[in-house]
């Protein structure tokens, strides 16, 4: 059974993935997100940290079962076969969705949401383009989930955990009812997932936004 | 044994990954990159194509062993266990490097190389920042390869195939001898890989650039 300590900062959506995976797999995971164990911005910039984790990214799982630590959130190490996909087909599908979340969802989601959190300058053109990208992504998911409860196979896998976490800020901040109305399957799937006890234990109560958050100067 | 047709366009470095994986795994792979089988710019815009491959990205592997096709280059489907990593630890490591290539190497590599190919407008600040990122990446790889021939385990895996392909344009276009001098392990590893018969069959002779290509108006 995997075990370890996840060094992170509060509300880190990437750490949520590892935490939820551990809820499902039973991996024993400690969270270190406050001093003295770990202070974001200090600990992760210290030479000792950087010599172990050259990317300097957080969240970081310790110990990792190899000297090379790049998968900063350790989701594979903390998972079990059910989460990773128990057949070659399913595991290839899981990897597809994990890659889809990282490469197709996170860029436009961040471009749209960060200005509403006040952590990035607002750029109207970039936000409008990001909205179109998000529509395209939701349409792909909606189509796929038309005849499915979960993204891969018949139960929650790393695919659902990763894609839910990458959509989290969108649903909490900007996907107001009118915007999400054309994608009912995605909303159904998202709510099914976040209401699973394992998701709830980590995310708490997830409330879908009622009004699209605007740029927060 | 996996088999299929890879729809792509010539010189598509993403397709190289699948082709090299197939060379190692023995998967029977046909390449369709010219009309009438596939004309980039026409076929990939057709409704039939987009109804099957919602992302609209190329290269695309057909058939894919599930209706959901997101992993556009099908590297996992075309691989065997040796390429994917034959132990849980190794396979987690392979996934780390594949994710590292996509999330850490491709962004700065594109920012630096695209202007030199005339794909994008030159931006001095973005290029300088990308150079620093590439240095950081090469330093991480150089450190890791200090005591290793390949990235994971004792032989070529999907990690080497993916990272080599993500570095390909850097070595061919801009990593001139003075720039790559501080990272000898990476150069040694890169040359070892591209001189493997399986790599050579797909990439041909890879020549490292002698002079850093500049912005191509």
């Amino acid at each position: 059974m995997a075990a370890g300590t996840l060094y992170t900062y509060p509300e880190n959506w990437r750490a949520f993935k590892a935490q939820i995976a551990a809820q499902y797999s039973g991996a024993r995971l400690k969270i270190a997100s406050a001093s003295p164990a770990f202070t974001f911005g200090q600990t992760n910039r210290s030479p000792a940290f950087l010599s172990n984790f050259p990317l300097g990214k957080v969240s970081i799982l310790m110990p990792f079962f190899n000297s090379c630590v790049l998968d900063v959130d350790g989701i594979y190490q903390l998972s079990n076969d059910a989460l990773r996909g128990s057949t070659p087909q399913d595991s290839a599908q899981v990897l597809q969705w994990v890659s889809f979340a990282d490469s197709e969802i996170i860029p436009p989601a961040s471009a749209w949401v960060f200005p509403t959190l006040g952590i990035m300058q607002f750029n109207k053109q970039a936000t409008e383009q990001a909205k179109e990208e998000v529509k395209r992504i939701l349409a792909i998911l909606n189509q796929h989930l038309n005849t499915r409860t979960f993204l891969v196979g018949e139960r929650v896998s790393l695919a659902d955990i990763t894609v839910v976490c990458s959509l989290l800020w969108l649903y909490k901040q900007v996907l107001e009812p009118a915007f999400r109305q054309p994608y009912p399957n995605v909303t159904r799937w998202f709510l099914t997932c976040v209401n699973q006890p394992q998701f709830k234990a980590v995310l708490g109560e997830v409330k879908l936004c009622e009004k699209m958050a605007q740029f927060d100067a | 044994m996996a088999a299929g047709t890879l729809y792509t366009y010539p010189e598509n470095w993403r397709a190289f990954k699948a082709q090299i994986a197939a060379q190692y795994s023995g998967a029977r792979l046909k390449i369709a990159s010219a009309s009438p089988a596939f004309t980039f710019g026409q076929t990939n815009r057709s409704p039939a194509f987009l109804s099957n491959f919602p992302l609209g990205k190329v290269s695309i592997l057909m058939p894919f062993f599930n209706s959901c096709v997101l992993d556009v280059d099908g590297i996992y489907q075309l691989s065997n266990d040796a390429l994917r990593g034959s132990t849980p630890q190794d396979s987690a490591q392979v996934l780390q490097w594949v994710s590292f290539a996509d999330s850490e190497i491709i962004p700065p590599a594109s920012a630096w190389v695209f202007p030199t190919l005339g794909i994008m407008q030159f931006n001095k600040q973005a290029t300088e920042q990308a150079k620093e990122e590439v240095k950081r990446i090469l330093a991480i790889l150089n450190q890791h390869l200090n005591t290793r021939t390949f990235l994971v385990g004792e032989r070529v895996s999907l990690a080497d195939i993916t990272v080599v392909c993500s570095l390909l344009w850097l070595y061919k276009q801009v990593l001139e001898p003075a720039f790559r001098q501080p990272y000898p392990n990476v150069t040694r590893w890169f040359l070892t890989c591209v001189n493997q018969p399986q790599f050579k069959a797909v990439l041909g002779e890879v020549k490292l650039c002698e002079k850093m290509a500049q912005f191509d108006a």
């Binding site: 490469s103 860029p107 961040s110 | 005339g118 794909i119």
Partner: peptide, 30 residues
């Protein structure tokens, strides 16, 4: 948490790069 989030390295321009690359190779392939 927002401050930490701001330090994440995100490839915001990825869609723009994807589009440029696609157009370039479509042009190259006539």
């Amino acid at each position: 948490a927002a401050e930490c989030l701001a330090q994440e390295r995100i490839w915001f321009d990825k869609p723009r790069y994807d589009e440029a690359e696609r157009q370039f190779y479509e042009r190259m392939n006539g």
